[in-house]
Computed example of a mutant assay.
Amino acid sequence: MSTTTVPPSDPLTWKQADTDVHVATRGGEFAGFVEFDGAAHLVRDNRGTELGAFDSLDDAFRALEEVHEPARRESVFTPILPRAWRRRPRRARA
């Protein structure tokens, strides 16, 4: 089994598959879909996990796009200070 990695910076491409189904792809790979059930737009990701129900189609599209955005991680490294700032303060000699 092989997996394809698509850069998260590629935008989602939407196509209407049926009157009540819109399918999203990214780089040619399936990314998820939105289905209208008569009352709300149901969003599912590429694994079929339900992401929620939305009143408008635009809100449903946005929800799937937000799931596919890369998560921002905080830096685990401490910033390196310039050498002059790393020195201990000197005591005055008498």
Rank of each mutant, 00 (worst) to 15 (best):
S2Y: 06
S2W: 05
T3H: 08
T4C: 11
T5N: 05
T5Q: 06
T5C: 08
V6E: 01
P7N: 09
P8S: 06
S9H: 11
D10W: 04
D10V: 06
L12P: 03
W14I: 12
W14K: 05
A17T: 13
A17N: 10
D18G: 15
D20L: 10
V21S: 07
V21L: 13
H22V: 12
H22D: 14
H22A: 10
A24M: 02
R26P: 08
G27W: 01
G28R: 05
G28I: 05
E29Q: 08
F30R: 01
F30K: 04
A31Q: 02
G32C: 00
F33Y: 12
V34L: 02
V34M: 00
F36M: 03
F36A: 02
G38E: 09
A40R: 15
L42W: 02
V43S: 00
V43F: 01
R44G: 00
R44P: 02
D45E: 06
R47H: 07
L51F: 04
L51R: 05
A53C: 10
D55Q: 14
S56T: 15
S56G: 13
S56M: 12
L57K: 05
D58G: 13
D58K: 15
D58R: 15
D59F: 01
D59V: 01
F61K: 07
F61M: 04
R62F: 11
E65K: 01
E66R: 01
E66K: 04
V67E: 00
H68Q: 04
H68K: 06
R72T: 14
R72L: 13
R73G: 15
R73N: 11
S75N: 08
V76Q: 08
I80L: 10
I80P: 09
L81Q: 13
L81W: 06
P82G: 07
P82Q: 10
P82S: 09
R83T: 07
R83V: 03
W85Y: 05
R86Y: 08
R87Y: 15
R88L: 15
R88Q: 11
P89E: 05
R90G: 12
R91F: 11
A92T: 12
R93D: 10
R93N: 08
R93M: 14
R93W: 10
A94M: 11
A94T: 14
A94G: 12
